[in-house]
Simulated assay, not measured.
Amino acid sequence: MKYITILGATGSVGTQTLEVIKKESEKFKLIAFSANKNYQRIINTIKEFKPKYVAVVDKFTYEKVREYCEMQNIDINIFEGIEGLTTISILPEVDIVVTSIVGMVGLVPTLNAIKAGKDIALANKETLVTGGEIVMKEAQKHKVNILPVDSEHSAIFQCLQGNSIESVNKIILTASGGPFRGKTKKDLINITPEQAIKHPNWNMGKKISIDSSTLLNKGLEVIEAHWLFGLDYKDIEVVIHPESVIHSMVEYKDGSIIAQLSSADMILPIQYALNYPKREKSLINKLDFYKINKLTFEKPDMINFRGFKLSYDAGIEGGIMPTILNAANEEAVELFLQKKIKYLKIIDIIEECMNKFENENNIELELILNTEKIVRKFIQDKYNF
């Protein structure tokens, strides 16, 4: 039996992780989870999975959950605020922490979980984008497995099994192209949040759906892949693959290419991470090759989708620049979702911040967290009217 904490249990990846736990209840037990404001999902999760602990970030929701559990005489420990994320990440009885919380808020509890010797099922790409150097060093020091849950990184991880990284020529990350593939800047001027979150292949949360539409998400995944697999940026390639059947590939030095294929369903990488190194009975719809008409591939459009190039450039520059990029993106996306800025302004704000703030190369956790605050405050002061 593996005992599990989920950071961000009410989001897309979190709810699908709960589905895996439910379907494989003989192997997994939910010990703790965190959530923000989704009161009903929090209560439903407590009632169905009966965890020992819950961390609720939002104060008002925390009070409602605490009151409900007291009235119903439910025996559960309830923690409030960001500090609760760390508390449930370092519990002695927990074996693996699923980090599916969105944004940089996942960095600190993930680091603390690693230091406590917990394996990490990583679905929070911002953790490695901003703190990859620190996180991977700590994981190596504490002999902790970092098991990728993003479909692309899980695919690469699977394609590498049985082979050494030294035998790799390059890795190839696939991307669907998002809902606006083939569009020009002129086409994107009046895009609404409702249009941008409609991903053609994947069911994801709002923030990551926006990132996918701008292709910035793929650049973040390049940075994440750099830290996960220890490859130079020149050895990480991105190809647009609209069908989302091939989730990523590894090209070896002898010219062989190994690809991981499956239906577009996050259940598979979640199940693989939780069961690693074993493979268990499928929980997803299997591919039917007789129904696949074609597999197509294109180069990324870096002219109309500058976000991809900016994120790639930030990764290559290194230092604190990926944190500047990520903080600017998180803030700009939120402004767009609130309809305070236009769609194309997201990337303009990111570029503005990358030009405004100087890079620093001596990365420490305090520098990362302070940089995030400074960048966010700059954007809020200038654009949050």
Rank of each mutant, 00 (worst) to 15 (best):
A139Q: 05
L325K: 10
I341H: 06
N73R: 15
K253S: 01
N190P: 01
E63S: 12
E83Q: 13
E24R: 15
I78P: 02
V129R: 10
K185T: 10
V57R: 08
K37F: 10
N359D: 07
Y343M: 01
V250N: 08
K47Y: 05
K294E: 15
T99M: 13
L122S: 02
G117A: 10
P193C: 06
K206G: 03
Q158M: 08
E317G: 00
R181F: 15
P148A: 12
M204G: 03
L122K: 03
F28P: 01
L111S: 09
I134S: 12
E133R: 15
I223T: 05
G205W: 04
I324T: 06
V375Y: 02
I101P: 01
F33E: 01
Y272Q: 12
G255R: 00
K218V: 01
I240C: 05
T371G: 08
L344E: 03
I146W: 01
P200E: 08
A225S: 15
Y53K: 11
F385W: 10
I347R: 08
K234A: 11
E331D: 08
N36Q: 11
V54M: 05
E317F: 03
D265F: 13
K340S: 04
D313L: 11
D75G: 08
I78G: 00
G182T: 09
L91G: 08
A116N: 06
P322D: 02
K52R: 13
F33M: 04
L369N: 07
M204C: 06
K47L: 13
Q72A: 15
F49V: 02
F79L: 13
I210N: 10
I236D: 00
E48D: 11
F357Y: 13
N355M: 08
T5E: 03
S256T: 15
K340C: 05
V239M: 13
E224T: 09
V56H: 07
P51A: 10
A32G: 03
E360F: 07
D288S: 10
V168F: 02
R41F: 10
N361K: 14
V129Y: 08
I101H: 04
I189T: 08
E67Y: 14
I134D: 05
T10R: 12
F297I: 05
N275H: 15
I292F: 03
T10H: 06
Y62D: 02
T17D: 07
K50F: 04
G182W: 09
L287C: 04
G81D: 04
Q140V: 06
I303D: 14
N293C: 03
V98C: 02
N36P: 01
H199Y: 05
L30C: 09
S282A: 12
T45H: 04
V375I: 14
H241Y: 03
V135T: 15
S151I: 11
L160M: 09
M136H: 05
C69Q: 06
D211E: 15
